[in-house]
Write a protein that binds this DNA or RNA. Sequence first.
DNA 1: AAGTGGTCTAGACCACTAT
DNA 2: TAGTGGTCTAGACCACTTT
Lengths: 270, 270
Amino acid sequence: MNSIISTANNPTVVPTASGAGVGASSASSLNASPTFSPLYQQIKALITQSLQSGEWKPGELIPSEMELASRFKVSQGTVRKAIDELSAENLVVRRQGKGTFVATHHEARSQFRFLRLAPDEGVPHYPENRIIEVKRMRAPAEVARLLDIKSGDSVVFIRRVQSFSGVPTILDDLWLPGSIFKGLTVERLNEYKGPMYGLFETEFGTHMIRASEQIRAVCADEAVASLLGVGVGMPLLNVERVSFTYGDKPVELRRGLYLTLNHHYRNELS
Amino acid sequence: MNSIISTANNPTVVPTASGAGVGASSASSLNASPTFSPLYQQIKALITQSLQSGEWKPGELIPSEMELASRFKVSQGTVRKAIDELSAENLVVRRQGKGTFVATHHEARSQFRFLRLAPDEGVPHYPENRIIEVKRMRAPAEVARLLDIKSGDSVVFIRRVQSFSGVPTILDDLWLPGSIFKGLTVERLNEYKGPMYGLFETEFGTHMIRASEQIRAVCADEAVASLLGVGVGMPLLNVERVSFTYGDKPVELRRGLYLTLNHHYRNELS
DNA sequence: AAGTGGTCTAGACCACTAT
DNA sequence: TAGTGGTCTAGACCACTTT
């Protein structure tokens, strides 16, 4: 009753002689089943599974709507509605005349989706990166909880400073599950230009699809003040982020300290 | 070529004898007109105009999809796609079996769309309001620029403190165009319970549809520290907001100072 | 029973991209 | 010229709400 195959509306199960491919609601009254979902949602879930399994990798072309409709034995319109939602969630990108592609962080349009700090004046641009430290450690309880791993499991810790036009502005601490990010070194991080999520995607097969942030105001302590080149007590934004990959699996914990003298965190409420 | 009436796809202009209501592309090659837009976008614009003009007020039922299709001489599917987008933008709310309603701030589901400060522990709830001051004044240059009015025009200034469980947490300064918010007094603000946007909507016919925020970290000065009951130098979030009503017209400038000892600004990146 | 939005299908044509 | 996504129509049935 809940799968693609057994759905009452599925034309392979209830082919119609006349007009629309919709049969009478089949088995008695079980449509009120708690696990019922529309066909296009099931198609969406199947496509998401293929994304998650790596059948189609970031940047690659996925099958056309007609092909998918044929594969899943539904109409093109149903596939279309599924892809519409995936596109709205930034999992795929549609390009008229070319096809539908798996979203990737190696693109101009994705560059600023996860970088909310913008200059008070002038156009946004990507900051320079300086890796301070990379080490493997045992996950503290709080880190483990947020990454949904066991306390004491191996994690990769990264500290870096990002600068705009040479001015240190962001101090980031990152914790990544050691099981996924094997072999991540200072060298690999330094030789890589552009957003870190691009590296995660290409080198470790982990594509970030969304993140949840909590923002607070704090004062710089001595260590932080030194790294950012400001005085002790300077007010900073404390941005705590948990990022998720396919299947809403948390795979990055990040604490950023943002200097907001010439920049601001931008947010659109709608 | 650009209006509803003269669109090539419009069945009133190019009625078809046979199947689909789509005629051959009419006048020569002008479809590449720079102002072309799909039918459903034109329908969406027309519905938005009706919202803006007050033909249907917040909380009210708008005509059914069939009625609108008939009024605009398009198919139900085209109206549906237009309303889909309006619904995604939170301008209207669909309710199966009942109809489509104009979005209103007098609803539980809207309460937290514009209040991003959440408690570190426990469930979010709406803060208590204390109005400190209401006065009319001449708009400073910066305020005038952001509200898209003339420098020196009349504006209403409001200062208030919001508390969670009795703990002062938010200090808000607001500037509103005097031309719209006539007769706004301390009494009216105090006797009104719930989100201020509900009052703006009901009493002044101004419904906020979106807002743009810029966030920085600052330190409390003496005046602020006194109002929030904290020490001078306490780090605070400085949240500058410009809110817009229909037609993307700016109608509120707000500067909030948030105490983030037991609360945080939450944000979902996707 | 009647009306509303929600889902699904089928088929047409358009705009864009590549070959 | 062929293939892709984008738009539009028409009609059916389903799920939900109210009368």
